[in-house]
Write a protein that binds this DNA or RNA. Structure first.
Lengths: 174, 174
DNA sequence: ACCTGAACACCGTTCAAGT
DNA sequence: ACCTGAACACCGTTCAAGT
């Protein structure tokens, strides 16, 4: 990769992070390119779809969540660890609607590994919770993630989101 | 209301129904106006926001759901009635993403009475279910509707949606 | 190889001009 | 009173032309 290409890519991600934080995940791609000091075509070469750009922007946040999963697995009971992690995930999805929507729409066989990482991190917590009998057998990580994302998208207030998540968690026990 | 105004309004709703069925709730308003044989300005006079047009289009469907609530309340047990109604609601939201999103975004104090009607119809079923001990006290209709809408929005397949709803219903019992 | 930026076909929304 | 439709400022996306 040529040095100027690398530099342009970095600038695009930085600009996208700033603009998306302001305008949300539907932010204008032209504006992102302009703010990065780059032609529109360059943005499209580096990121052929909007989703690919969004996933790049969210990578840091997703990695934070994965790290949190490992911390919780070591420091808390199976039940507490899963609950705390889902609450953290819910917060992220709510402060960043783009995160929720992007993960939701990412095809399950996606080669974009950050969504995969998230599923893997969650799977550990879920398995522990199932062994402890807090989550009934047959429930998949994917079920739990989608349920949490749905709550993040549909809840009309933070308090409601918390409440719906706790209802969902009770439901997981069977 | 002048007769031509009335006629234009009807044509707009008919055109919107057709176009939205094809293109989803983000369908082009210009195209709807054009297909209705009407100027763009006329659409805006009758429906100042996209949401107001969407709610008009969905009114029929929402009334169907309300009627179903009353039928179920008379013919089934409290538990079955609520479950069956939520399944019907889930189906509607999934076949018509616009329905889910529109209801979700409709301000709770909205004067658009179709969303209110839906809440009222649901409230009867929820109250019965609570008396029967199938839904724990403290849960609001609004909680249940938002949870179901969230599931409709986030689930990646019909089978998943069904599964998530049944998890949620278990959670409602407390 | 990589980048630029004008060009294209759209979008929502407004508003002077018509009837 | 109500409607029309051209006009405006956008949008995503492409692609010839440049370095």
């Amino acid at each position: 990769m040529r040095v100027d290409a690398r530099r342009n890519r970095d600038r695009l991600v930085a600009a996208a992070t700033a603009v998306i934080a302001e305008q949300g995940p539907a932010a204008s791609l032209n504006e992102i390119a302009q703010q990065a000091g780059v032609g529109a075509g360059t943005l499209y070469r580096h990121f052929p779809t909007r989703e690919s750009l969004l996933l790049e922007v969210f990578t840091t946040r997703i990695e934070t969540l994965c790290a949190r999963a490992h911390e919780l697995a070591e420091s808390r009971s199976p039940s507490d660890a899963l609950t705390a992690w889902l609450e953290a995930f819910l917060q992220h999805c709510r402060t960043d609607r783009g995160l929720a929507e992007t993960i939701m729409k990412a095809p399950s066989g996606s080669d974009l590994n950050c969504a995969v990482k998230l599923r893997t991190a969650g799977a550990g917590l879920v398995a522990r919770a199932q062994e402890a009998g807090v989550v009934r057998a047959g429930v998949e990580v994917e079920d739990i993630l989608q349920l949490t994302i749905g709550i993040a998208l549909a809840a009309d207030s933070p308090a409601r989101a918390e409440r719906l998540l706790s209802i969902a968690i009770v439901g997981l026990r069977g």
